[in-house]
Design a binder for these strands. Sequence first.
DNA 1: CCGTATCCATTCCGATACTG
DNA 2: CAGTATCGGAATGGATACGG
Lengths: 167, 167
Amino acid sequence: MTRSSFADMDCPIAQAAEQLADKWKFVIIRNAFNGMRRFDDFAEQLGVASNVLTARLSELVAADILTRVPVDGDGRAVEYRLTAKGHDLFPMVIFLPQWSDRWLKKRGGPRFEITSADTGELVQPMQVTTASGVVVTSKRAQIREGRGRSSVYRDIKGPSGQTAYGG
Amino acid sequence: MTRSSFADMDCPIAQAAEQLADKWKFVIIRNAFNGMRRFDDFAEQLGVASNVLTARLSELVAADILTRVPVDGDGRAVEYRLTAKGHDLFPMVIFLPQWSDRWLKKRGGPRFEITSADTGELVQPMQVTTASGVVVTSKRAQIREGRGRSSVYRDIKGPSGQTAYGG
DNA sequence: CCGTATCCATTCCGATACTG
DNA sequence: CAGTATCGGAATGGATACGG
């Protein structure tokens, strides 16, 4: 049977998808990380229709990724700021450009670099590691559910139909 | 002016959004990492209509995230496998459940853990670090474009309208 | 097993106009 | 400045039936 909503999918990726999987949200969040806060700035720089922007901002506020705060001294002005939950998307905001740069770039070298404002050091390409610094690849990762059932990411040699966490 | 396509947005996140920002793609990719390869398995386990699944798989193949390989010995059977580009999404597949678990879970403790199949160690929460291991936060990251212009992620105290890379 | 074809309802999106 | 109201066309989604 086919489903219309992800609400009954007990899967953390499906839940995240519900809140994030939209073209406009990606770039709104990106600009929010860049310090953008105002409706008109988003509208102009993204090139999005005002009604669509209203809808997306509302959804992000409803998801508690952005928060809507009136600006002191101007009864009309409003700012959209990242919440703690929104700020916690930072690794993804770093990862996506890295992935794009590796796989989508048309020509030339890397177009940008990201550094620590404190030390000036380059940030590392995002990778999955353990506490001891071992890099875990997608073929050698193992996921264990709360219930104790366990399975391994095994795209290359695993059986089809294998699932790690329910969905 | 409003835009209809992201094609002219010279922004790596916008490019990634074009290829990834879709609900179904998130869960298809998740299941692909779990070793799922067959059309019917995706259709049944995700609960997606076959025409929609066809469309999404085709887009992922067109984006070179999945590859479509005929199965030996069965003229009809086909497998969808992650490409190298697809495998490179692994950090995101790890990050999203971590983020969901932190912010979206309804109750109880973490529902699952991810470990290295080699050492058994837990994987770390995804975070942005430098080579020397310094953790970079969203408020102390600095991005420099190829052209040399530079700006800082500064959600809390920055001016509105600030942009790091064009969009 | 892996899709296509078709249909229909719903949603979405951009454009435009207007407002406190 | 930050939206709301409305509209029409396009795209999407689900259901269903069918085919090699």
